[in-house]
Amino acid sequence: MAYLELKNIYKTYGEGKDATEVLSNINLSIEEGEFVAIVGFTGSGKTTLVNLINGLLEPTSGEVLFKGEPVKGTSHERGVIFQNYSLLPWLSVEQNVLMAVREAFPKREKAVWKRKAAHYIDMVGLTPAINKLPKELSGGMRQRVAVARALSMKPDMIIMDEPLGALDALTRGNLQDQILNIWGKDKRTALLITNDVDEGIYMADRIIPLRPGPNATLGPEFKIDIERPRDKTELNDNPIYKTTRNAIIEYLMGIGEGRKSEQQSTYILPDLAPKSFVRL
């Protein structure tokens, strides 16, 4: 039985005439310990899909099964890393993480909470900034706090919604490695939503493209049979990497082309010429 299973998911926003179907007929199953990436264009319904899985939204029809049980609301078993970090700006790094630890382990003592929080902050390398406020941190550091917060609840599955989307290329690479490192230690199930094909190939076992919405649905899956730990520089010469990358991009571009041709129409340009030009 799959660890996480989505069966015939449809999600519609609005009602009656104004109803727009964002997701249609989504089927997905993720095995325990697997790292799956979903790649898609911006605005294709990725965040909606994530919110269905983490329990912030309910599907209009279909079922989300986690460990065989239907998902009802959020749960500490599924940790979420939001696209925009969503740290609480009035709390320090430690307090942000402590808040999560306290909720996940309500019966422990304060000292235990503090130790756990410190452990996860150390894991993302932010111990020197433990008492700082989010506004005093860089974008990359903020996202690391968000990672520490999600991990500190010891979730069975970790869901990442474009976690590195707003970061610069170098910070991005660093954080990818850090996330992989942490994931490699206890092989938790992970779902990564991204718009970067390279990031997906570098990090995931399996990539599934999301055909853009409205009526977004999942495309064919691509397995990434590259051994871990993967090396970014070597990856460029890896034949599997090249073929997979090309196939995915071709697929996504194909959808993009299809999308373009749908919108194509002819425009009649006005017959204008600058004054100084001699009309031929």
Binding site: N54, L56, S75, F82, W90
Partner: peptide, 27 residues
Amino acid sequence: KDYINVAKVLKLGQLQKIFKIILPSSL
């Protein structure tokens, strides 16, 4: 809405949500 989502994901209780998320953010 982001803060409310945090409260939901962390599964804060109603009182916790008011005192730890809603009040500080409306200060």
